[in-house]
């Protein structure tokens, strides 16, 4: 936990050098990011449409079976996925900038939010499953407010020093920005 807090503090220091505008949904970088996210989602939806539809069920077996099938199929379809396919260098730089900006006015709250969650130290890879039994670190609302909007199927998550894109239903790491909090 201390490590994460220290990392956040470092990010906070970075913001002193930053005086840019907040997220601009019309910028070419953000539009490109949205296109890449939409392409992932389209692929994921087309894969899921071939699986039996998951509805509320008393069978945990059916839920985990769906999760596993979806994850394996997406993984297979993206077996050549590499860091930066969605988080391109330009987008990564923009997200770092937006996080640093969010830390500027809301730094103490964000630090407290991260402290009060259960920070995890993970080094995940693309196409990897978010590990069983490891708590999900809360993504502070102030950060989410400052980052480009995502469709509900995909989430920004903090894992150790990294920001990952997590497909929550498939429980799958879609892309990663390394060392955001260092």
């Amino acid at each position: 936990m201390k490590l994460v807090v220290a990392m956040v503090l470092l990010t906070d220091v970075l913001c002193a050098q930053i005086g840019h505008a907040p997220v601009n949904a019309d910028s070419a970088i953000i539009r490109d990011f949205e296109k890449r996210v939409a392409a992932y989602l389209q692929l994921r939806k087309s894969i899921e449409s071939n699986l039996p539809k998951l509805k509320a069920t008393p069978s945990e077996e059916k839920i985990s079976h769906h999760e596993i099938q979806l994850r394996h199929a997406v993984r297979e379809a993206r077996k050549y996925a590499r860091p930066g396919d969605i988080f391109t260098p330009e987008i990564s730089a923009e997200i770092r900038r937006l996080i640093a900006m969010a830390m500027h006015p809301d730094g103490p709250e964000i630090r407290q939010s991260l402290r009060s969650a259960e920070p995890v130290q993970l080094h995940l890879a693309i196409n990897e499953k978010y590990p069983d039994g490891v708590p999900l670190q809360t993504t502070p609302p102030s950060l989410l407010e400052n980052l480009p909007a995502l469709p509900p199927e995909i989430e920004y998550r903090i894992t150790g020093r990294d920001v990952v894109l997590l497909d929550a239903k498939a429980n799958l790491i879609v892309d990663i920005i390394r060392g955001v909090f260092s």
């Binding site: 103490p108 964000i110 407290q112 402290r115 009060s116 809360t138 502070p140 102030s142 407010e145």
Partner: peptide, 20 residues
């Protein structure tokens, strides 16, 4: 799940969530 106010020593409150 996460409390806006808490005097627990382990976690404490989530003040960012509280602000929202």
């Amino acid at each position: 799940h996460h409390p806006l106010y808490s005097d627990g020593k382990f976690h404490g409150p989530d003040t960012d969530l509280r602000a929202r």
